[in-house]
Write a protein that binds this DNA or RNA. Structure first.
Lengths: 217, 217
DNA sequence: GGCACAATGGGGCAAACACACCAATGAAAA
DNA sequence: TTTTCATTGGTGTGTTTGCCCCATTGTGCC
């Protein structure tokens, strides 16, 4: 097997430099470029045609999910490996749906990162072990239930509206007053939102609303 | 000048490994140890007596600010350099007040990190350039306005601990079980936190915890 | 015409939250 | 030494949440 040509994408220069040192210490890997965000990454992929893109998920500007989608559309032969701080199942599924072949969190052992890069370079999928079991089980449950589309897309406009007000800290009664609805209806919406997103408390709702940009932290 | 002995503290193994590679590539630096959180860091400092501690600010468990405070109390000769994802002025000032000699964000150029380590090892202070001007100006403005204490300082360690668990979505009962306290005490802490921060519901608490980096969105 | 689904309502219930009031201990600061 | 404050605990009350049950209306799709 030859050398695996890797493109590093991360918005933090020090993290990029550290990753470059780590990968170049492996004698079967070569870092052919670095990108600071999604736009740069898409651009570099079309020019450098790397074997594997190491993709940070959360970045300012175009994030890793959108970048992955564009890369897999333009260059399906390029393998994308998601790398993130967050052990977040939404990021996880969105990256996979966008076309990523694997997903590793920064808390993982470096050896696991090398294994993941070699796996996706060889055309296999690699999912960080501690995530795989739990999340894949959840996923398969939902596939069986016919729920495979992106969770956020499945929220109706009204539900997003209610979710935003919940995120701003309003109670059901206040939301009802604000939207000219009954408290029961607001509760109903909240309940439906939680069902759709598989969340079970207010903390999850608020953090979801923040991640989706519905409210400011 | 001899070799600078550095202790790396970060909760992500891959980031630690990358930093280690980066620093050991410099011939005047030596990584003498790694710590995954504040507790480990304090412990390692007392055993290894490094010249410089590279300290991630936001970590689960004891964060970099509390760890810095303990280190400077027990071993004032050890220099602490804050390193963080966040260009957050609260972190910045809290680290400095805790006794850190410098502050670099992960988005900085790696060369700047080396310069900072050499500076603090030599007893100088180092503040990441793009932050210094803006933040110091803001700070002086507020000193003039008589508003020097920020609200986060007014939370006790225990209160921060409870706030973090609230932000993670645990109920009072679960927090009580986790910290071996009665539910009444947890409620009491939550109430005191809300008083101090002038917040009046769970949404505000969670968003505050996110802003301060106690929990991930 | 059926079928699915969004949106609007109703009721009930156990748990959690938010806010009162109360108190004891211990450590640190004045 | 007195005072302040963090930490620990308790009672009580009303509100909010989260999760069940139920229904009607309207829209769009097959």
């Amino acid at each position: 097997m030859g050398t695996t040509r890797v493109l590093i994408t991360d918005d933090h220069a020090i993290v990029r430099a550290g990753l470059r040192m780590l990968l170049e210490d492996q004698d079967d890997m070569e870092v052919v470029g670095e990108a600071r965000n999604g736009e740069e990454c898409v651009d570099q992929v079309s020019r450098l045609k790397p074997d594997v893109v190491l993709m940070d998920v959360a970045m300012p500007g175009m994030d890793g999910i959108a970048a992955t989608r564009q890369i897999k559309e333009a260059s399906p032969e390029v393998q994308v490996l998601g790398l993130t701080m967050h052990q977040d199942e939404n990021y996880f599924f969105q990256m996979l749906r966008a076309g990523a072949s694997g997903y590793v969190i920064k808390g993982a052992d470096p050896e696991e990162l090398f294994t993941a890069i070699r796996a996706v370079a060889g055309g296999e999928a690699y999912l960080y072990s501690s995530l795989t079991k739990k999340l894949l089980d959840d996923y398969l449950d939902r596939v069986k239930a016919g729920d495979v589309s992106d969770s956020h897309d499945r929220l109706s406009d009204r539900e997003k509206e209610v979710l935003q007000l919940i995120g701003e800290g309003l109670t059901s009664r206040e939301i009802a007053g604000s939207l000219y609805l009954s408290v029961n209806t607001v509760d109903r919406h909240r309940s439906n939102i939680m069902d759709k997103l598989d969340l079970h408390n207010k903390a999850g709702l608020i953090k979801y609303a923040i991640r989706k940009g519905l409210v400011e932290p």
